[in-house]
Every structure is written in structure tokens, then in C-alpha cells.
Design a binder for these strands. Structure first.
Length: 292
DNA sequence: AGGCGATCCTGAGGGC
DNA sequence: TGCCCTCAGGATCGCC
């Protein structure tokens, strides 16, 4: 499920538990759930065993946990992943694929669990943050919280639907299906509109909307649809603020028109036929890439 | 180039 | 109650 706001909420809820804490023991319960940067099997050392945690770093939907000695573990939640802080005597929930025993800065010992029923998520380990940035994160675009009109320049000539562009992590990292629909509605842009048909004002609105929608969701603690919870098991409240996602057939919160839905970029898409008109300009050159 | 379907999985929810 | 079907927040691959 998780998009940028959910991962950021997780990061913030995790920090007080792990920053300055020591990984006493690391266990991979499903070998194929972790991809180490070296050949061979994942070792406890890859999973930061013995390390003191220096902090966390998020880029898009991915979360890096960084050790003081430089080792890095990158977490991707996929669609159903959760990182949970539990007591050492609590039984593991179903589909727990990795577990860490952690001595928090306070001295309390807890267990950190990564569960992911659908297993679309995973762990990747690296000897350094640079190694992560040069491989796994290399193809990611700028973090969506920093979205600006220039970030759309590489796709300004593209005939792809603008929603497909928003979902493309190499253009902007962190936007998923929910917030793509929400940002497009806020910006008044039709999801199916070809990127090349949008004008500079559309891209300005879109960049602002992406940032605002994500910031509001972060503030609300993320969206809880089915199973998202932060590390402390708390749900988020951004769902109540959704203007279009999951509201097909209901009235638009802005104009009252019935929200329509369809499939764009192979994902369920909801939009307002009135607030999000198709662009009427036939061609836009203003943000086009310079031809070289 | 990019749309599309299939694929990796499990679980929830609706219909019957 | 239970079975079967559809659908789901992500991302990649190959085909056309």
C-alpha cells in the first residue's frame, strides 16, 4: 500500500526506537526476502547485526536505515509491508520475514519485525550509503516532496497519460496510485491527458499539488486503507481527506459532479469530469526539452 | 515509445 | 457458513 507519506510516517515513528540503538541480533526468516549487494547469502552482518544505528533516510517510497559504521539496509514495503516494534516475548505475526533484536537508546530491548503478506516488498543491503545511491536509488527521480515544474521537463514531449507519468518513479519518486489521483484532482488536470498536451501553468499547479497532497498526508500520519500502520501499530488518518480516491460515483467535493472512474496506467483511476477538464491547447512547447 | 497483460503473493469483501 | 470470484497501495518483464 504504502506511498511516500506512509513510508515517511514509518520513518518518523521508527526513529526514536532505533537512532542510537544497537542491533543485538538480526535474523532473516525467508532467504529470498533480502538481496545483499554481494554474491552469496545474506549474513546477519548485512542486516546490521552489531551496529549502532546512526539514523534513517527516505527517498520516495524507500527507507534506508544507516549504521554508524556505514552499513546500510534499504527497506521497501511493496504493497503490504509493515515494520513493527514489539516486545521480545510477543509472538511473531504471520508473514514475518525478518526480525531484529534491538537495544533502544533508553536501554529497553525490543524486537523489530518486518512482515509482508504479499511479499512485493523486500530488503536490500549495502556496505555504504554511496553503494545504495549508485545502484538501487540510481534510477529514482527526485523525491516527490520536492516536486517542481522542471522535474516534468523530461516528459514534456511525451504522449503518455499524465497519471502514468506521475506513477513513474524515475520521473518523481514517491507518488503511488492514491496520491496521483488526489494531486491531479487538486491541480484540475485530467489523469488521461497526454503529458505533451499540458501547459506550463498545468505543470506548476501539478507540482504544487503533489507537494501539498503529500505533505497533508504526512501530517495526517499516512493513509490507512487495509493494513498500513506505523512502527508503533498506529493507523493513519489521511483517508478521510481523500477527495477522489475510492469515491467513484460519489459527488465531487468541490463541484458536486459525479466522480467518474476508469483504468489508466493499469490502475484504477477516479476523476471529476468538471473540475478536471481535458486540456484544450493542442500543443505545448513552453516546458519542452531543448533539442540538441 | 508506450500500452497492455502477465506475474510475483495473500487477504478482504461481495455475491450467491 | 462457506465457496468462488474479484480486487488491492508496487514494480518488472516481455510482447505488440
Amino acid at each position: 500500500m504504502p506511498e511516500l507519506p506512509e513510508v515517511e510516517s514509518l520513518r518518523r515513528s521508527l526513529e526514536p526506537h532505533i537512532r542510537g540503538g544497537v542491533v543485538v541480533r538480526a535474523q532473516l526468516l525467508r532467504a529470498d526476502f533480502c538481496t545483499p549487494s554481494h554474491d552469496g547469502n545474506t549474513t546477519p552482518a548485512d542486516l546490521l547485526e552489531g551496529a549502532t544505528i546512526a539514523g534513517t533516510l527516505r527517498h520516495g517510497k524507500q527507507l534506508a536505515i544507516i549504521a554508524q559504521d556505514g552499513r546500510v539496509m534499504c527497506v521497501h514495503l511493496g504493497m503490504s509491508g509493515q515494520v513493527l516494534v514489539r516486545g521480545t516475548d510477543d509472538p511473531h505475526p504471520t508473514h514475518t520475514h525478518a526480525a531484529w533484536e534491538l537495544r533502544e537508546p533508553s536501554g529497553r530491548v525490543v524486537r523489530l519485525l518486518f512482515r509482508d503478506p504479499r511479499r512485493f516488498g523486500g530488503l536490500w543491503t549495502f556496505p555504504t550509503l554511496d553503494a545504495l545511491r549508485q545502484t538501487l536509488w540510481k534510477e529514482l527521480g527526485p523525491d516527490a516532496l520536492t516536486a517542481s515544474p522542471e522535474h516534468f521537463e523530461p516528459v514534456a514531449d511525451s504522449r503518455r497519460a499524465i497519471k502514468a507519468v506521475l506513477l513513474d518513479q524515475s520521473v518523481l519518486a514517491g507518488v503511488g496510485n492514491i496520491y496521483a489521483d488526489e494531486a491531479l484532482h487538486r491541480a484540475g488536470v485530467r489523469p488521461a491527458a497526454a503529458a505533451c498536451r499540458l501547459g506550463q501553468p498545468d505543470y506548476v499547479k501539478l507540482a504544487v499539488s503533489v507537494r501539498e497532497v503529500l505533505k497533508a498526508a504526512v501530517k495526517a500520519g499516512g493513509s490507512t486503507l487495509r493494513d498500513y500502520v506505523n512502527a508503533d501499530g498506529e493507523a493513519g488518518w489521511a483517508t478521510i481527506n481523500h477527495a477522489v480516491y475510492g469515491r467513484q460515483g460519489l459527488p465531487c467535493v468541490r463541484c458536486g459532479a459525479t466522480l467518474r472512474h476508469g483504468t489508466i496506467g493499469q490502475r484504477t483511476t477516479v476523476w471529476c469530469p468538471v473540475c478536471q477538464p481535458l486540456p484544450n491547447r493542442s500543443r505545448n512547447r513552453q516546458v519542452s526539452k531543448q533539442r540538441t
